[in-house]
Design a protein around this nucleic acid. Structure first.
Lengths: 345, 345
DNA sequence: TTGTAGGCGTTATCAC
DNA sequence: GTGATAACGCCTACAA
């Protein structure tokens, strides 16, 4: 087992000082040709690589970015993560991921852990519990310490930091409008409890479109399902009890489930009922019929977040002074049309 | 912006030495009650937290584990990752993820990057390109440096290290046997190019079952699809040109695609053709009909890998000496039966 | 051209 | 009881 070699080892072997070695390996002009050659050859031979930790300590920067997301087994977050990872990598950053599991406590613990020097900045989407609790002190502490933070998707107005979101409200609004123009009149909404800001925004877009077209708002056509739990009976009852000709779901899982139920009840899709989901993932793609779905461009969101974060990190590192300017970037969602809706114009 | 406070700051403020502060915060018996109280109170007030990087440098351990996987937007890997992350977290470890994107070069770069002090050990699944190239020097170097390594799923015999795999061969064998017992005679296999060891193993199980039951092996019933690429035409032709009554696919995406094609061609599932996939993910669950699928227990695999790795890390850290004993743990896959197959006994 | 010294933040050993 | 010192591995301003 050949241990990692350090500057000290090289210095001892070659009988020079540590700083000479350090400079030689940086090809400094200060050092003489022969010594440089000798040292560089030796370093190559023993495959010397500087120790990241030591450099981090010295430079007070780790080139790690911390990502905290509610769930990793979830297409959207996974996609965002890929965007973050890819962009970060091109800039020489590594990514440390922690999963909050929708739990406030885990989010806090993970943040504190990483904030003690492990990372140069955070990218995160709030846990459901955090949004419910509306307690953002852990975020505020981190930003007060001068650690850059970028929130995406699940964000809050109560923390001053950079944000990346999609235009949920507008996307939902546009979808419903298209459904109305296609002649649908009884349009249902299947959503989660509304403490998730994204669901709330999508619901608003839904309501706005109905109002604009003078369609009655029928609360019976709005179904709230528990987030990430089976609830077959609730949804079944919903479709048995109500007549509708279109359904907007705030995620693709709800959409695919509901399509299945509707199909079992004998409805034809999209002739009798049209379906639209959010999160254009693998399910939408392979559903039968294919599910028309709002693509949230997770990867772009991730890249954008990573870019904003890294820019801030590097700016902080150069200028001591810091004018606190925060941006919120909005990614435009796009509708992917498939067979679960009639052709829109 | 209140900067992070260090031992030094506390020492200066309270006019004691750094080592006194360090000891006081560890509640050392050496330090007097009053000084301890004073220091602890001050530390709490200013929310002192030791700097992870400094501790890492001192202790030569980071409490980070490096995970390198071919793809994160992939249900199986995601599930494994969740297992790793959860287990690691309970043991106080963080996880740094790098995605190799099936590329040999990226795998090498990422490994080298992390190996320079950023992590205490690796968990990884080999990139497709690496398996094709059969070049494992980067793995060998890392293990020679004494960094623990656990391979999972995509493993190789050429590297001596701990491994976690599922019994792919046996699982495929069992599935095919069940299909035969259910009266199926022309059983097809849809697989990837065979440099992916998992696909190769599954194919072997398939062949073995056929042989054991004296069924002819018809190479026309074996379809090799390019990994992760659309290939609608290839598969369509396959179903048009061949008669079969069952299909085993090495992943759920292939299975769902094929089911769709078969359905369009007018076959009833499972009456005319039964379908079984590997990777019991979201697609199998929501497919129509539900896809019978081999559950690879990704999460358990991840937990197991993390446990093996962390045990080795901690053992290494205590005993200087190291007897090189490597294990390969085999996770038993289980078959999740759904509507795409006839009821098995 | 090369080396010394100090520091990044922490801990452990040993001296006072 | 408390503090000085050295060390982890690296970098750099300054001396020689």
């Amino acid at each position: 087992m050949k241990q990692k070699i350090t500057l000290k080892h090289i210095a001892r072997e070659l009988d020079v000082s540590i700083s000479t070695v350090s400079k030689a390996l940086k090809n400094s002009e200060e050092i003489g040709r022969d010594t440089k050659d000798k040292i560089q050859a030796f370093a190559r031979l023993y495959n010397y690589k500087p120790n990241n930790i030591a450099i981090s300590l010295k430079n007070k920067r780790t080139r790690n970015i911390g990502v905290i997301i509610p769930d990793i087994v979830h297409h959207f977050f996974t996609t965002v993560f890929r965007g973050i990872e890819q962009f970060a990598n091109t800039k020489g950053y590594n990514v440390i991921v922690c999963v909050s599991d929708e739990s406030f406590d885990k989010e806090v613990i993970n943040m504190e852990m990483l904030a003690n020097g492990s990372i140069d900045g955070f990218i995160m989407a709030l846990a459901g519990e955090t949004q419910l609790k509306k307690d953002f002190n852990h975020l505020k502490e981190v930003t007060e310490q001068g650690i850059p933070l970028v929130l995406f998707d699940r964000v809050t107005d109560e923390v001053r930091c950079d944000k990346v979101i999609i235009n949920d409200e507008a996307a939902a609004h546009q979808v419903v409008k298209k459904l109305i123009k296609a002649g649908r009149k009884r349009i249902a909404l299947v959503t989660t409890e509304d403490y998730l800001n994204v669901s709330a925004n999508r619901a608003e877009g839904y309501y706005r479109a109905l109002k604009e077209h003078n369609l009655p708002i029928d609360e019976k056509l709005v179904l709230e399902l528990p987030y990430q739990q089976e609830s077959e009976t609730l949804s079944k009852k919903f479709f048995e009890d109500n007549k509708m000709d279109a359904v907007l779901c705030v995620n693709e899982i709800f959409a695919v489930k509901c399509m299945g139920i509707a199909q079992k009840l004998g409805y034809r899709i999209p002739e009798d009922i049209a379906f639209v989901g959010f999160t254009d993932g693998i399910l939408s793609h392979f559903a039968n019929p294919g599910l028309t779905s709002v693509d949230q461009h997770g990867q772009i969101m991730g890249e954008t977040a990573a870019q904003m974060l890294i820019e801030k990190i590097e700016r902080d590192h150069e200028n001591e002074v810091e004018e606190e300017i925060f941006e919120t970037k909005i990614i435009a969602a796009t509708l992917i049309e498939r067979a679960s809706t009639p052709k829109f114009l």
